[in-house]
Simulated scan of single mutants.
Amino acid sequence: MREGAEMANQSLRQRLGARRPYVLDEQVGFILRQVYQRHAALFMSVVGEDLTTTQWAALSRLHQNGPCSQNLLGRHTAMDASTIKGVIDRLQARGLVERLADPEDGRRLLVQLTEAGREVVSRTLPLAQLVTEQTLAPLNLEERQTLLDCLAKLI
């Protein structure tokens, strides 16, 4: 089975390679990285609050879903275990989240927003929406929806 897949991949590479040369500026990963860099720069300049986009994702998800385990929060924010741990550690050090024992399972810790965290989210939500608008500003409404639909298919 693996041999068949390798042959299919090799055949695909040969067909793609025969079409045109590899041009970095035309590669999806390169383009996505540039778009993300633009978005992250907009986020930092508009939102402020000394928040990274990953920290914002954690705060936003906790606001949206309520308290949850660190592991589940990582899954809900597309972060691996070590990344979400670092994010939560930094947010906790700033007093924006707290860890507490799960009343249903004493072995598990829940992460939840503190009052300060809720205040930051309330102040920041409209700014985060503005960042999305600014990121998508070069596109008309139909193009925006098409882009979002296409990106969702790639996840």
Rank of each mutant, 00 (worst) to 15 (best):
A57L: 13
A116G: 08
E119Y: 02
R144F: 06
A40F: 05
V87I: 10
P138F: 01
L16N: 05
D102K: 13
L151H: 01
Q92W: 00
T52E: 03
M7A: 13
T77C: 15
G106Q: 13
W56T: 07
E143I: 02
D50H: 14
H39C: 12
A137H: 11
M7Q: 14
L91T: 00
R19L: 11
G4W: 10
L100R: 15
A78C: 12
S60P: 02
C68M: 15
D25S: 14
Q37R: 15
I88A: 06
Q129F: 08
M79N: 01
P21R: 14
T124R: 09
L109G: 09
S60V: 00
E115R: 14
L72P: 04
R38K: 15
L32E: 06
E133Q: 06
R33L: 10
N140K: 13
H63A: 13
G29F: 08
P67F: 04
V120R: 12
L24R: 14
V97P: 03
L148T: 09
S45W: 09
V28Q: 00
G74F: 09
E133N: 03
R99G: 05
L125D: 07
T146D: 05
Q92I: 04
R33Q: 10
R108L: 12
I84G: 09
Q34W: 13
G106S: 12
Q134T: 07
M7T: 14
D89Y: 12
L136G: 07
G48M: 04
V47L: 02
L16A: 05
V131P: 02
G48I: 06
G29H: 12
E3W: 00
L125W: 08
Q112Y: 02
R38A: 03
L148I: 14
M79P: 01
D89C: 07
M79A: 02
L96C: 05
Q37A: 14
G74C: 03
D89T: 13
R33F: 09
S45A: 14
S82V: 10
R99Y: 04
T53L: 11
S82Q: 11
A58R: 10
D80N: 11
L147P: 05
E115D: 01
T53H: 10
S82G: 03
N140R: 12
A81Q: 01
L147K: 08
L100Q: 11
D89I: 11
R90D: 01
T135E: 06
G117T: 01
L91W: 00
L96T: 00
L96H: 12
A137G: 06
V35S: 15
L42A: 09
A137S: 08
Q34K: 15
E49I: 06
L32T: 11
E104R: 14
T77R: 15
T124N: 08
A101V: 14
D149K: 11
Q112T: 12
V131S: 01
L73K: 13
I88R: 12
L59P: 04
M7N: 07
A57M: 07
L109Q: 13
